[in-house]
Write a protein that binds this DNA or RNA. Structure first.
Lengths: 331, 331
DNA sequence: CTGAAAGCGCTTACAG
DNA sequence: CTGAAAGCGCTTACAG
């Protein structure tokens, strides 16, 4: 049984295809009687417009590509970021009647696929998620001249509107909290340095310490738990006497906690730990994590709304959400 | 600048549109010279086929809807399941040249959206993820007569092929491990009972205990950490002397660990804890979790491959992946 | 092997 | 307000 077409509905209702189209698309200029006739025929036939046909003439797709940078295989993780951001963005986009096409951009091969896909006109707009600064994709896509936004500021000189949280302010709060506790040797575990969030959090750490005469003690991770484990080992080796650590995200803080436990250091007595993000897991670590709340869901929703605004010809002002320290037991 | 069309390429190459179409679609019946001419024109013009036009005539979309049941707002969680499953499925599908349209199915409203979307012919196939037994969506979609698979067996009498893990066998291993340790009072925290995975894990728990003369001690959770916290409290109240608990997933086990810590019980000395799933977080709990490994990524990939097979007219045999106990420190 | 033509199912000026 | 007609950009029998 083939699906009914506009033409079938028109025949059934005894009106022209034009009228059916107008009714289906909710145009005002239709007599109530005709509208009634059409509505009934639509219902009886179970008519649903063919999106390909519609899109062919309107040149719109009502689809949005959500492009998430994916680490090369092997580095699979259950990244809570992915879940929260993709979910929140999907909700926002779906509520606006857009469909979400999810694309993982990891390998060079997938980059080509994404580029082809977007340039084929499959989507009306693009939302970038957790792009690394070194990634050439944003620049390539920018040339396609489609509405595009980024979840988090980009590290490349491409003018893409974004929603972000106040990384500088949030990290500064974390470090000040440690200072107020009288901690003397405050280390940090930075995130991947090709991401702006990592850069900003590290910058704030350094600047907040500078005025106090303390020196920076830095190890670099990549936002995964295991990198937190290793970075913490490195820090302990670099300065066995450290008494505090600010991790650039909660996952690494959780890794650091494991290392500290294995090293026999008590948290927060011997070493205070502060994370960043306030993911749900931070409530379940032992001890529960003091962290900086920067609701990724809200940020993702804001990014999605920015794109929706752009699609309607709205402004492209970046949005910065506030970040707030949440004190629990680890510091 | 409008995007070039097939026609423009034909004009440039000095051949017919038919020939261009054949070359672009890789049909064999084309002279090398013509192919060469067309290839060059395609390159020079930067031609990319219009998917809407193509889809209109072929009646295919090369798109797959991945439908994930989403809890009503408020119940947002950073569910590692979502991340692992969606990622793994996307990789598999994208590698096969399919695009992934992600749809969240929570509210009745979103159900209607999903139904409309699928019946409009937007996609060639459907992959269901973590459907609850009470959910009417699978039955509704089944009527649309599209290739459809489910990540995990469905709880409704709808014949949808699936990939699952050996829930019965995995849970039995977990409980036997506890028995072998000589545990006397073994409780369980079950998952939501309208999901087949929960049902099977609970059934295996009961049956494994039955032969030993021990009685069942059951609390019900919903696969979230907080539900594990609460279920564990309930359990402790029901039987203060319990000495082991099998949680139907790791998230709830992690919640249970928190309750036990707060209650001053040592794990595993006083109470042994076993989880299920072997998510990455189970390596970071204190103590690290003994659990059942059932790689969700593999299961998702298997589900995706099942759908790809179906699209090619392949068989629809369910796939059951083995589950294996991973002994760490919590039991 | 190649090309002219029909047709996929819509929307949208344009007349009336 | 309504309808006939053109056209969106492809693919695919059908002749030659």
């Amino acid at each position: 049984m083939k699906r009914p077409t506009l033409e079938a509905v028109a025949a059934r209702a005894g009106v022209s295809k034009s009228s059916v189209s107008r009714v289906v698309n909710g145009q005002a200029t239709v007599t109530p009687e005709i509208r009634e006739l059409v509505m009934r025929a639509v219902k009886e036939l179970g008519y649903v417009p063919n999106p390909a046909a519609r899109s062919l003439v309107t040149q719109r797709t009502d689809a949005i590509a959500v492009i998430v940078s994916d680490p090369p295989a092997g580095l699979v993780s259950d990244d809570p970021m992915f879940s929260m951001v993709v979910r929140a963005a999907s909700r926002e986009l779906e509520a606006a009647g857009k469909q979400v096409v999810l694309m993982l951009a990891g390998s060079p091969e997938s980059h080509r696929r994404v580029e082809r896909f977007v340039s084929a006109g499959h989507v009306d707009g693009v939302m970038l998620v957790s792009m690394h600064g070194a990634d050439p994709l944003p620049a390539v896509l920018a040339r396609l001249d489609l509405p595009m936004v980024s979840h988090g500021r980009l590290g490349v000189p491409v003018d893409v509107p974004y929603a972000d949280n106040d990384n500088l302010g949030g990290a500064a709060q974390a470090v000040r909290h440690l200072l107020e506790q009288g901690r003397r040797r405050i280390a940090t575990i930075a995130g991947p340095l090709d991401m702006t969030a990592s850069q900003d959090r590290l910058t704030a750490y350094r600047e907040t310490l500078r005025d106090t005469g303390r020196r920076s003690i830095v190890a670099i991770g990549d936002f995964t738990r295991i990198s937190g484990v290793e970075a913490m080992r490195q820090l302990l080796q670099d300065d066995p006497a450290l008494d505090a650590v600010f991790a650039a995200n909660d996952l690494m803080a959780i890794g650091a906690l494991r290392t500290l436990r294995e090293a026999g250091r008590r948290v927060p007595d011997d070493v205070a730990v502060v994370g960043y993000d306030d993911i749900e897991a931070s409530l379940y670590s032992d001890p529960p994590l003091t962290t900086v709340r920067s609701p990724m869901g809200d940020q993702a929703a804001a990014t999605a709304r920015l794109l929706l605004g752009l699609l309607e010809g709205g402004p492209a002002e970046p949005v910065i959400l506030p970040a707030e320290l949440v004190v629990r037991e680890s510091a």
